[in-house]
């Protein structure tokens, strides 16, 4: 049995639903945020994710970072060395999707060249009638960047665990890979 620990940096434009998504995930759906409250700094949420078919788990330290440009610099100081990244946009805003590459670069700049497993999340899937970003377009960009793509609706409690489970699994796979590599060195 092993418990891994991963520093998960959660970024994306303001008001795309980062806090709603991470709170929905970390509270198992018991914390529903009805009104928007802007995150000004970084909020830390911790949740353990079990890796299916093993007795192992990954404890995610989710750094929910403000999306508003004014606060970004302060937030970056608290990121430390990221283990995994979660970039969020809303499917009803093309602008928020276009910002994703900038967010990803920002986080990667803190990695000292280390591999950074990540996911791209298209939130607000409940707003399908106002969709501005097609699933296939988001999927393609995610693939280019080596990210897994998930669509969620924090409002409808739809699929909110999937991105975090996928991050935990990617980090776990990296650990197993390194473990085997080191085993061969000894």
């Amino acid at each position: 049995m092993v418990k891994l620990r991963a520093r998960c940096i959660l970024v994306g434009d303001a008001a795309v639903g980062k806090s709603a998504l991470s709170q929905m995930f970390s509270s198992d759906g018991s914390h529903i945020q009805k009104n928007y409250s802007m995150t000004a700094g970084v909020e830390l949420l911790v949740k353990s994710v079990n890796i299916p078919e093993t007795s192992d788990s990954v404890e995610l330290y989710i750094f929910d970072s403000a999306g508003r440009e004014t606060f970004v610099e302060t937030c970056e100081k608290m990121w430390g060395q990221p283990s995994v990244v979660c970039v969020v946009f809303e499917i009803s805003s093309l602008d928020s999707f276009k910002s994703c590459s900038r967010w990803l670069e920002r986080v990667r700049a803190h990695c000292n060249g280390l591999q950074l497993p990540g996911v791209l999340v298209g939130n607000k899937s409940d707003l399908a009638s106002r969709r501005e970003v097609e699933t296939s377009v988001a999927q393609e960009w995610a693939q280019e960047q080596g990210l897994q793509y998930h669509e969620t609706s924090a409002k409808e409690m739809e699929n909110c665990d999937a991105p975090f489970l996928s991050l935990a699994q990617a980090f776990y796979a990296l650990y197993q890979d390194r473990r085997q590599m080191i085993q061969r060195l000894g």
Binding site: V2, V58, R179
Partner: peptide
């Protein structure tokens, strides 16, 4: 990690090891 306990560092053997598990 139960497969890589801390005692592996003081058993005099470089084949066994303690492995950090993140952060």
């Amino acid at each position: 990690d139960e497969n890589h306990p801390p005692e592996s560092m003081i058993d005099g053997n470089t084949e066994t090891f303690w492995l950090s598990t993140g952060m």
